[in-house]
């Protein structure tokens, strides 16, 4: 299964549905992560915040490949996309291991395929480098075997590449 997480708005959902089994629109309406770790210690893989992202990590856990379509913000993800990723740490368990030569949490849903980031907007060279490092770090963190980053001038082009 392939998942697409995007901040392109609901109108792009129709187009993206043809490209993936799962399309999640990060629309910025969701509460941010509270950092309580209860998605590990109280209700595994479920957030204490009872909104629509409550079990998003269980949904993403079913997917082999993940594509993130995001506006560039200082060489990172947009607030809406980052919010969704912050709320997804139940993809891992509270136990730790070594992965990529560093400490990381063990994976609840096992190793995965490809993590692809499509960033759009204007970029400085430093922001492009930061996004490459961010994608690499996220891929190791979430257990993806491969990662890649593409840069697009605008949301239209980014949606087309997803």
């Amino acid at each position: 299964m392939k998942a697409i997480i995007h901040d392109l708005g609901t109108e792009q959902n129709m187009r993206l549905r043809a490209a993936a089994d799962l399309v999640i629109c990060a629309d910025g309406r969701y509460a941010p992560c509270q950092g309580c770790f209860r998605c590990w210690t109280r209700h595994p893989a479920a957030c204490v915040l009872k909104d629509e992202l409550r079990e998003v990590c269980r949904v993403l856990g079913m997917c082999e490949d993940m594509t993130v379509v995001t506006a560039n913000l200082y060489g990172g993800y947009s607030p809406a996309v980052k919010n969704l990723l912050d709320r997804s740490i139940g993809l891992s368990t509270p136990l730790s291991t070594y992965r990529g030569g560093q400490m990381h949490h063990t994976l609840r849903y096992g190793r995965k395929g490809r993590f692809h980031v499509i960033a759009y907007g204007t970029f400085t060279e430093a922001e492009k480098q930061a996004l490459r490092l961010m994608a690499e770090s996220n891929a190791v963190n979430m257990g993806f075997r491969e990662h890649s980053v593409a840069f697009c001038a605008d949301a239209e082009e980014a949606g087309g590449q997803a």
Binding site: R42, H43, P44, R54, M62, Y109
Partner: peptide
């Protein structure tokens, strides 16, 4: 949490899924 599928591959219950389509 250790008694509620602590390390399991838990599946969505369907109650609070995000606005998902595919």
């Amino acid at each position: 949490g250790i008694f509620r599928g602590w390390l399991s591959r838990l599946k969505p219950t369907g109650g609070c899924e995000p606005a998902v389509s595919g």
